[in-house]
């Protein structure tokens, strides 16, 4: 009878929810573990907000990545786009006459859109493998960044610096410093943008026909075509959204670091992919969730912070722990999905 029960859980849960649940549970266990064993910083809410502040750009790009992955593709150009956007905006704000903040934002979104149009066209219309297309996209963006400006530099435009330093206080969650003065908890503007995007995309994926067609195309492209879904348009839009979000994410990143550099956002595409996977998106397509991706980013950065606060601050420890975590998540997913298949079969 116990057997029967297990079977029912697998029957009721669809793949997406099953993987999402695993992610959220593991994230909370990890965070609670950090609070209990490392205490100090982790027990303060600001620690959590700092994670958000530092990773708003990653959240945005990872969301775009999830959409492409759900529809069965991949985009490894996002890190390059982020670097290119930061550099272009930095050059515009610092090296032209009378720059305007709004225009710099338009530049960021414009670069993303352009990238999405070209990559979407190559993938959806010419049917070229997305990995190759975005690989070339990554090379191009990284190369262009150094062509635009080789040396890294800080932006000193006053309006921009003011925007960069804008802090939005979070009520009730502040803490008292050593002198007993109340320090309010805060988040940066980028975090608000990121949260809005998460909510918007969650709604799109869950309740719009476009969102559901991403899942359908990722689940079985041929079937989706037969069921009357415009597969080309869907794939095109998935790349368009992903690259545009990379553009927006690029601006948020720029807003956080306040500089342009060719080495910005190195390996961000891999972090975005890793976050999506940890959040329960399958690279085979058709399964995934934006909320999961959000928690994926949080899990990834929490582990980085745990490593850092444990005194293992050598850069190589971060690499090893992230890899180890990715490995564990992948193994859990692999085992759970295999179990599920078995349960359904018998």
């Amino acid at each position: 009878m116990k057997e029967k029960n297990k079977f029912n859980i697998f029957e009721k849960m669809n793949d997406t929810n099953l993987l999402l649940t695993i992610t959220i549970v593991i994230f909370f266990l990890m965070y609670i573990g950090a609070v209990l064993f490392q205490g100090g910083g982790f027990s303060k809410p600001q620690m959590f907000f700092n994670i958000l502040n530092a990773n708003a750009a990653l959240i945005i790009t990872a969301c775009g990545m999830s959409i492409v992955m759900i529809s069965g593709g991949i985009d490894i150009s996002v890190g390059g786009v982020v670097a290119l956007v930061s550099m272009c905006c930095a050059v515009y704000l610092d090296k032209t006459n009378s720059p305007n903040i709004l225009v710099s934002m338009l530049i960021a979104v414009g670069i993303g859109l352009l990238y999405g149009l070209v990559q979407g066209f190559l993938v959806a219309v010419l049917d070229i493998q997305p990995f190759i297309v975005s690989l070339a996209g990554m090379f191009f963006a990284r190369g262009m960044t150094t062509i635009v400006n080789t040396a890294p530099f800080n932006v000193e435009n006053q309006a921009f610096v003011a925007l960069k330093d804008t802090r939005v206080n979070v009520p009730f969650l502040g803490s008292y410093n050593k002198k007993g003065i109340y320090v309010p908890a805060y988040i940066e503007i980028g975090v608000i943008v990121a949260l809005l995007i998460v909510i918007l995309l969650f709604v799109v994926l869950k309740w719009t026909k476009l969102g559901r067609s991403f899942y359908a195309v990722g689940g079985n492209r041929q079937s989706a075509l037969m069921m009357g879904i415009n597969v080309r348009r869907t794939k095109f839009l998935s790349h368009l959204i992903c690259s545009t979000l990379a553009g927006i994410g690029g601006y948020v990143y720029f807003l956080h670091v306040g500089s342009g550099s060719a080495s910005h956002a190195m390996g961000m595409e891999m972090n975005a992919i890793a976050s999506s996977i940890i959040g329960g998106t399958l690279l085979t397509g058709g399964v995934g969730n934006i909320i999961g991706t959000f928690f994926g980013v949080l899990s990834l950065s929490t582990i980085q912070n745990i490593v850092a606060s444990a005194g293992l601050d050598e850069a190589w420890w971060t690499g090893i722990t992230i890899a180890a975590m990715l490995c564990i998540f992948l193994l859990i997913q692999s085992v759970v999905m295999a179990q599920k298949k078995k349960a359904i079969k018998t």
Binding site: A216, N220, Q222, M227, G286
Partner: peptide, 19 residues
């Protein structure tokens, strides 16, 4: 069709109404 042209990752209802 002979081969099932539905999406295995969607729900039964979605497979009936999508597109």
């Amino acid at each position: 069709y002979q081969e099932i042209t539905l999406c295995p990752n969607l729900t039964v209802a979605e497979n009936m109404f999508i597109g």
